[in-house]
Amino acid sequence: MDMLLAILIGLPMTILVTVLALLIGSVLALPLVAGLRSHNRFVWLLCRGLVDLLRGIPPVVWLFILYYGISVGVIRLTSLQAGVLGLGLVAAAYLAEIYRGALTAVHAGQWEASSALGLDRATIWARIIAPQAWRAAIPAYTTFAIGLLKDSSIASTIGVAEIVFMSNHYARQSGGSITVYFVAAAVYIVLSVPLGMLSRKIDIRMRKTVTR
């Protein structure tokens, strides 16, 4: 029981890292996806390069670079800041690709009809394209969010006191029993399975109203 309690002390941090990284990723992915769709060769190349760079390097390496690498000068990131920022940046790259795919799922006729009606670009994006793209993105988005929930454990490597960090701590103190990791696994399952169920439910409900 105290094993579970010891792990649960890390739960708020796991959720905090996941939510903040997802938030940063979701927002930063917007300019990235705009760049990926840009007709300007330079902007496109810049964003394409950024996405490939962010995705191409393992998240744990990003965290090390941000945590240990940026110590020159006055800026020094705490482990939480480095963890959230690192995972958020990597999330931005993946989410940009998810958004991009979702946008291509919106039929070209939607643009044409909106333009022919004389709607301005901002309205077309906000009221017509984005809501439809968002619906198309939900399954991939939640899959990624669940993945991120688990990947937040990577932040333990730079000392963020989340679930895995607390499990390690407990294992060392109690003489190396691995039972604690089974309990940690159960905690992750309890968190991620309902998320998946919720996602499928939303997806099915939206499909029912929207599919042609």
Partner: peptide, 30 residues
């Protein structure tokens, strides 16, 4: 575009809006 209304082969209604919103939204915006 306001002077010319267009009707497409594949209708191109907005699938995420109700029929009423489909007809009303452009009036509100345009």
């Amino acid at each position: 575009r306001r002077s010319a209304g267009m009707v497409f082969q594949h209708f191109n209604l907005f699938p995420h809006l109700t029929v009423l919103r489909n007809v009303s939204l452009p009036q509100e915006r345009v």
